[in-house]
Amino acid sequence: MQELSIRLPQIPDIAPLEPFDADLLRAMYRQMVLIRQFELKVNELFLQGIMPGTIHLSLGQEASVVGACMALEADDVITLTHRGHGQALAKGLSADSLMAELFGKETGCCRGKGGSLHVGDMSVGALPALAIVGASSPIAAGMAFAFKRQETGQVALNFFGEGTVNKGDWHEALNLASVWKLPVVFLCENNLYGVSTHISEVMAIEYVAERASSYGMPGSTIYGNDPIIVFQTVMAAAQRARSGGGPTLIECLTYRRGGHKRDDPGAYRPREEVEAWFKTDPIPAFRARLLKDERFSPSALDVLEEAVTATIDAAVDFALASDTPALTAALEFVYAD
């Protein structure tokens, strides 16, 4: 047995917020809080036995998905993972339709046919999630292929975890995207664990982004708990893609605050690693950072947080009050006309 190499967070210097628009910073914080509150509520509903199915929470990874999605245009398209609630909300899915989908209701973003593992809404540029690890990478490249061929100027962003990077589909996608210079950003949320398996057990190099060079594309490893760093890195990659420069691989180092899924306490993780990463929780860190900027006050952020709470409560009410699908819906949408 190989020794696990504990990966402690390496927190880079905090960049000043002054150059950034206050609305952008507020929206970033709001989206991160929205995802956090949404998932805490989902966890609570699940523990109460009210919510069906299975859930994979992304608590702790909010900065990566929010920073990435805010760097995209509204009509850019993302692909989501099995851990996709945060990605969906970050791209602009309504909390109502997302919550309703988790309850399997007709008003859900996928009419209750997808569930937690397949959330998405094409109207906001979120291809319903593909829950098989690696499968979305060539599909993201294919959407980018269409954007390039149709000259729409759109970009595709492929979210995946570090557990994906040993799958053939992923490698095939990076190769094709690079050979055909497709406008796609491959974004790895590296939370160090594929279910219980530490990355050092299954990958012989230290960083995922090192693999970019073998496909002739730029790659970078960044601290994924800082939404500003993620935002800037994805912005540059998206601009490069839009201008015909081809794909980029970005690795965001982050950490799950929970286990792989709701019934997994994550006990396989070394205490030292857990404690160090838990101190880097992106939401309090970003709040503290905002409050060092005179454009933000504690009371204003409190109001923002309370408004998010109201949004989540309304989403739960909406989902619970919504109808379940008619049983005939089981036979619909197998084929298109």
Binding site: P138, I139, G142, A146, D169, H171, A173, N175, L176
Partner: peptide
């Protein structure tokens, strides 16, 4: 294409989703 069936099938799926 490269000899990369999963890759180019997935790519075709993505292109089809976007109207090709």
């Amino acid at each position: 294409t490269p000899i990369s069936e999963a890759g180019f099938v997935g790519l075709a799926i993505g292109a089809a989703v976007q109207g090709m």
